[in-house]
């Protein structure tokens, strides 16, 4: 993403970089700025989708706002585009980091012919991109988790060194699919990271009514896999923990149940109204937990990010979102024959 900065801007960045610290919390400034931009861009794209829904231009949107720090921390610890990624519908920031473009996402949101996830067959946020090993999102929750175990098993049988990363919400961990997947992961010591993006709500049901434990990762011991809980509002902490888990998996030393504590800043989806189950006070607390301004502050205080650079990042993200939105809106719909198939592979 930074390769597209124009010549004049590049020299400006270099000037800043000469005086700016090169590392923060043990991570290079370059990486941290990339992570920050990836979070920012995902947020702007997400916000645009909400806007399009409220304008009546799209039928549906489901959001990842509040999950970006966790998703970007994990994505940047992967070999992005090579490691297998089986996302769920909140993983906008993560699929963008792994290879879908903003335009790809918008083509899907508008149901257009060139949507690379499904050619307009699936609802928005049901991502996939074969060329980057981003597998297909389904609406029934947790189905991707035992499939990820199968992807990881195949990788092990083939003697490959790619890991499989899959994500789901904490509510979905109550599905049998999750239990069976972790059983395989433990028995076969699979190169698998099962990421639970725990935002405390299964649509409207709070965690206390979802499970009688405090941490989803407490379940790991029952399957013989590692269990980790990380502050998913902190992209640096998430990155480091994810890197360790992925390294362990890649070295053939087994799977990790990787819980990230995040916040869901929005209703469940465009069709939900969370004022029926979250108070005004809760929403204020939520907003204070937003990982994006927190990370911005952290980088600025350390002198990694300047006001000017942040403004430029913001403008760049908006330009990318504008382009994606306008291009996708003007793009052609699929021919109706596309609805009829093909149903079977040749």
């Amino acid at each position: 993403m930074r390769g597209s900065i124009s010549q004049g801007e590049t020299s400006m960045v270099m000037t800043v970089a000469e005086t700016a610290p090169r590392t923060l919390d043990g991570l290079p400034a370059e990486l941290l700025l990339d992570m920050y931009y990836a979070m920012l861009r995902a947020r702007r794209l997400d916000e645009r989708c909400w806007l399009l829904h409220r304008q009546g231009k799209i039928a549906f949107h489901i959001s990842g706002m509040g999950h970006e720090a966790a998703q970007i921390g994990i994505a940047f610890a992967m070999r992005r585009g090579e490691d297998h990624f089986l996302p769920y519908y909140r993983d906008l920031a993560m699929v963008l980091a792994c290879g879908l473009t903003s335009l790809d996402v918008m083509l899907g949101v508008f149901g257009k012919k060139d949507d690379p996830s499904s050619g307009g067959r699936q609802m928005p946020e049901h991502f996939s991109l074969r060329s980057k090993n981003i597998y297909s999102v389904s609406s029934p929750v947790a189905t991707q988790v035992p499939q990820a175990a199968g992807v990881a098993l195949a990788e092990k049988l083939k003697g490959g060194d790619r890991v499989a990363v899959t994500c789901l919400g904490e509510g979905s961990t109550n599905q049998g699919d999750f239990h069976e997947a972790l059983t395989w992961a433990g028995v076969h010591q699979l190169p698998l990271i099962v990421v639970v993006e725990n935002n405390g709500y299964a649509i409207s049901v709070p965690m206390v009514q979802e499970m009688a434990i405090l941490h989803v990762s407490d379940r790991a011991g029952a399957y013989g896999v590692r269990g980790v809980t990380v502050d998913g509002l902190d992209p640096i902490a998430t990155y480091k923990a994810a890197k360790e888990s992925i390294d362990i998996a890649r070295a053939g030393r087994g799977a990790t149940l990787f819980e990230v504590r995040v916040v869901r800043l929005t209703p469940h989806s465009s069709d939900d109204d969370d004022t029926t189950y979250r108070s005004k006070e809760d929403k204020v607390t939520l907003k204070a937990s937003d990982p994006l301004p927190k990370f911005r502050e952290h980088l600025m205080q350390a002198g990694i990010l300047t006001d000017q650079q942040d403004t430029e990042f913001g403008a760049k993200a908006m330009a990318e979102v504008d382009y994606a939105h306008q291009t996708a809106e003007a793009a052609p719909y699929p021919d109706v024959e596309w609805g009829a198939g093909p149903v079977y592979a040749p």
Partner: peptide, 15 residues
């Protein structure tokens, strides 16, 4: 469930 699901995943990953 997972006999089939693991099969699906393995099939998508080339087996």
């Amino acid at each position: 469930l997972s006999i089939v699901a693991v099969g699906i995943g393995a099939a998508m990953n080339g087996l």
